[in-house]
Simulated scan of single mutants.
Amino acid sequence: MRSLTAYQEVKQKITEDLVRGRFPMGQALPAEKDLSKELDVSIGTLRKAVDELVAEGIVVRRQGKGTFVAEHDVKRLLYYFFHVVKHDADKKINPRVDLVSLNSAIASKEEAIKLQIKEGSPVWRLINCLYLDEKCVMIDHITLDKRRFKNLTRTDFIQREGSIYQLYQMKYGQTVVRSSERLRAGLAGKQYSEWLGLKPNSPVLIIRRVALGMQDEPLEWRVSTLNTHQYEYFSELVV
């Protein structure tokens, strides 16, 4: 096994502290001189480690204020994890999400693989309708490992403050930092056609997403069905 470099070890230690909750969301990390002394490394090594954490969206730098643990505020939701816009639109519209159902279930083979749990493990299954301009444009089918999200209720979702990812972070200490997605074409079944206001078997875009945490652990498995008649999937790469 390849050994870690000094900055990679520092990055790992900081990440482990974040996972354990030493630095809560929104809180500033210690000053560079204090953290480098604590970890017994140079300022340069510490900065390289923090640079990678910033690039991965785990922490954010605020000019003149320091480095803070990332929060899932509205801006982060819209520009990192929300990718639906109207055709030819030049800006994103704030989404509204309504919970259709939340049920206890056991993990299918695919769910178990995506969440890295045993087949038959207890899971939550949720169905959401996502609205833009008061029109349902996407259906999310979400699966969560019950061990990570104990005692989850409909009330948690309906009365949450902010986004679903904010709920994961604030109530359960599960922070989504990135996602891995695959897209495919599909046809809307009867129920999805009704929800999306489409004729049965209309073409739709299916987005299959695993949301990952600070240590690349899978936190959520989501299959989204998008009405592409007036809306499209948007992604912007920064190089």
Rank of each mutant, 00 (worst) to 15 (best):
L77P: 01
L77K: 04
L77S: 03
L78H: 02
L78P: 00
L78C: 12
L78E: 06
L78V: 09
Y79D: 05
Y79R: 09
Y80T: 12
F81K: 01
F81L: 05
F81R: 01
F82C: 10
H83F: 05
H83A: 05
H83V: 08
H83R: 13
H83G: 06
H83T: 10
V84P: 00
V85F: 06
V85A: 07
K86I: 02
K86R: 13
K86P: 00
H87P: 04
H87K: 15
H87Y: 12
D88P: 05
A89S: 09
A89Q: 01
A89E: 07
A89P: 04
A89I: 02
D90K: 12
D90I: 10
K91A: 12
K91Q: 11
K91W: 15
K92C: 02
K92N: 07
I93H: 05
I93G: 00
I93M: 07
N94R: 14
N94M: 11
P95A: 04
P95D: 06
P95S: 05
R96K: 14
R96V: 14
V97F: 13
V97G: 09
V97Q: 13
V97T: 15
D98P: 09
D98C: 05
D98M: 08
L99M: 10
V100R: 06
V100E: 13
V100I: 15
V100T: 14
V100A: 13
V100M: 14
S101P: 09
S101T: 12
L102C: 08
L102K: 08
N103P: 02
N103D: 14
N103W: 03
S104P: 05
S104W: 06
S104L: 12
A105G: 07
A105E: 09
A105V: 10
A105I: 10
I106H: 01
I106S: 02
I106E: 03
I106T: 08
I106C: 04
A107E: 01
S108Q: 06
S108D: 06
K109G: 09
K109D: 11
E110H: 03
E110A: 05
E110T: 07
E110R: 00
E111I: 04
E111L: 02
A112C: 12
A112S: 11
A112G: 09
A112Y: 05
A112V: 03
A112T: 01
I113Q: 08
I113K: 08
K114T: 01
K114H: 04
L115C: 02
L115N: 03
Q116G: 12
I117A: 09
I117C: 07
K118H: 14
K118N: 15
K118P: 13
E119G: 11
E119Q: 14
G120F: 06
G120V: 00
G120R: 02
G120L: 06
G120K: 07
S121E: 11
S121A: 15
S121F: 08
S121I: 04
P122Y: 02
P122T: 07
V123R: 00
V123I: 07
V123W: 03
W124H: 10
W124E: 03
W124R: 00
W124K: 01
W124I: 05
R125N: 11
L126E: 10
L126F: 03
L126K: 08
L126V: 10
I127S: 09
I127T: 12
I127G: 04
N128T: 11
N128G: 11
C129M: 15
L130M: 14
L130C: 13
Y131K: 04
Y131S: 11
L132N: 00
L132F: 01
L132I: 08
D133V: 15
E134N: 10
